[in-house]
């Protein structure tokens, strides 16, 4: 065992003394026994690994929970509940959201998100109801100290199934939203979102999210 380790290490030590020799490099197990941190001698970490995030476009990923309120629940007859403040029947849903976005230019971004959850009322252990959706968004945002405020327009598709059926009913979604985020660190945000449907009267949403950014302050400072 010890001998085999030595055999693996020794050829490498010889190659390190002449790192420009491509033939020897090709025979050298990469990274094995490389204790040098000097550029030109080290093999495992390329020069400038610390600048990786800036070389690429600023990307963010957010995870959150959103409460959705559907003002007119006529299409969700078995899952509906009746609100006391309105004569129309409404229904609520709680969905988990994953969102991936990219900074297009300072102050402008595009994002895509998927959501999945179920209706808050009418569900039980036997229920099969589900709310799923996918949505693309374009927005503008600005920074004020540790606060970022923005607005966006989203277009996508959302499907529903009722508690005791497997049938998925879908519809086009068009939403206007406002967002506020606080930077807990240059790469980490916590935020809130609120929005309203532009297609269905009385539909609104509100949620919270945690965001991770590949560049400090979304590459916008």
């Amino acid at each position: 065992m010890l001998l085999s380790m030595l055999l693996l290490v020794l050829p490498h030590e010889e190659a390190r003394a002449d790192s420009v020799d491509d033939d020897l490099d090709a025979l050298t197990p990469p990274c094995l026994g490389t204790d040098s941190e000097v550029v030109g001698y080290r093999k495992c970490t390329p020069y400038g690994a610390w600048s990786l995030a800036v070389d690429e476009r600023a990307i963010f990923v957010a995870y959150g929970m959103t409460w959705r309120h559907f003002g007119d629940a006529t299409s969700h007859s078995t899952a509906r509940s009746t609100t006391s403040s309105s004569s129309t029947e409404s229904i609520d849903a709680l969905v988990f959201v994953e969102r991936v976005g990219v900074t297009l230019s300072p102050g402008a971004f595009a994002a895509f998100e998927i959501e999945m959850g179920n209706f808050a009322a009418g569900s039980d252990a036997e229920s099969h109801d589900i709310v799923v959706g996918g949505l693309g968004a374009f927005g503008l945002r600005g920074h004020l100290a540790s606060l970022t405020l923005g607005g966006e327009l989203g277009l996508g598709y959302r499907g529903y199934s009722e508690p005791h059926t497997y049938e998925l009913v879908g519809e086009l979604v068009l939403e206007a939203r406002g967002r506020a985020e606080i930077w807990l660190s240059p790469w980490f945000t916590i935020g809130v979102v609120a929005g309203s449907s532009l297609r269905r009267h009385g539909d609104w949403m509100a949620g919270i999210s945690l965001g991770f950014h590949t560049q400090s302050y979304a590459g916008e400072r």
């Binding site: 000097v38 550029v39 030109g40 400038g48 610390w50 600048s51 800036v54 240059p186 400090s216 400072r221």
Partner: peptide, 14 residues
């Protein structure tokens, strides 16, 4: 190379 805002880096050169 660009160093991101509030980030750190380290290099050793001969």
């Amino acid at each position: 190379r660009w160093l991101d805002g509030r980030a750190v880096g380290r290099e050793t050169l001969a």
